[in-house]
């Protein structure tokens, strides 16, 4: 746990200093939490002080994926209700320096989040963090709207299938109308497309939408394409952000995505079917 003094919640007008990234999708099960964990860890690996907040009150998952579930004492809702200070609730990641996790409450529901409470927490965090990653719950209701309201950047996680694409389209509409930036008349939220569970051979077989198809429908810049991989599931089960598995394609793809998020030009990888050589097949190179 870091040692700084707990700050006082800022005023409404206070300009947020940290960049707030919301990882959202509309549809459930597309990889929001996996992506939040990976992007947050990736930013911290590059030296940015980063906090990941789990907004999925009642369906807490982020702590499992980050492997810190046994260290949760206080949570986001406790901080909002002033039952605990932010420093008591923030969990410092054991593997990655500069990385902190603010878990959601498992025993409450989304109504426990209040706009003022969320703003107070974000204001306090933004004072000495560089990035705040908000892991949004599925859906378009209160929890999801709360997670994206204060965002500067949105990472829209989409699977290459029609229902996920349509839900992402819906959430993009909400990003255009129900955010602090829109209401304050500022620059709109930066939108990025993160395509997950991409399987080039199934695209070739016509079973999945291609990158081109999804880009065509959503018309927002492509942040990255994460190939479908067993490594993601394995890493989740071990409580390890997949970006730390540097030899896996998914881990590398997330690293590329973080680089692009920071403005670097990195070519997209893993979009084509790779012909596996005999040895590669024998060794199960994934």
């Amino acid at each position: 746990m870091n040692t700084r003094e707990p700050g006082v919640a800022g005023k409404n007008e206070e300009r947020l200093l940290a960049k707030i990234i919301v990882v959202t999708s509309g549809k459930g099960g597309v990889g929001k939490t996996t992506s939040s964990a990976a992007i947050g860890t990736g930013l911290a690996l590059r030296g940015f002080k980063t906090a990941i907040i789990d907004f999925d009150v009642g369906l807490r998952n982020l702590d499992l994926i980050m492997g810190c579930e046994r260290r949760v004492v206080y949570d986001f809702v406790n901080v909002i209700n002033k039952e605990a200070t932010l420093n008591q609730a923030l969990i410092k990641d054991k593997r990655t320096p500069n990385l902190f996790i603010l878990p959601a409450s498992q025993t409450r529901d989304k109504d426990a989040l209040s706009q003022e409470g969320v703003q107070a927490v974000l204001n306090e965090l933004s004072r000495d963090f560089d990035y705040i990653v908000c892991d949004s719950p599925a859906g378009i209701e209160k929890g999801a709207q709360m997670a994206l309201y204060y965002a500067d950047i949105a990472v829209v996680v989409t699977n290459p299938e029609v229902s996920s694409v349509r839900d992402s389209d819906r959430i993009l509409g909400i990003l255009q109308s129900k955010t602090r930036r829109v209401e304050a008349g500022e620059e709109p939220v930066q939108e990025h497309l993160l395509l997950t569970r991409y399987n080039p051979s199934r695209v070739q077989a016509g079973e999945m939408l291609s990158v081109q198809d999804v880009e065509d429908i959503l018309a927002i810049p492509l942040l990255g394409v994460i190939p479908e991989s067993e490594a993601v599931l394995k890493a989740s089960n071990q409580g390890m952000p997949v970006i730390l598995e540097k030899e896996t394609e998914a881990g590398q793809a997330y690293s590329d995505a973080v680089a692009r998020l920071l403005g670097e030009e990195v070519e997209h990888r893993f979009l084509e079917v790779q012909k596996k050589g005999f040895f590669k097949r024998l060794l199960g190179g994934k």
């Binding site: 378009i140 389209d169 819906r170 909400i174 255009q176």
Partner: peptide
């Protein structure tokens, strides 16, 4: 001038 999204 901006895209009109699903649900809008």
């Amino acid at each position: 001038t901006r895209p009109i999204r699903s649900g809008q």
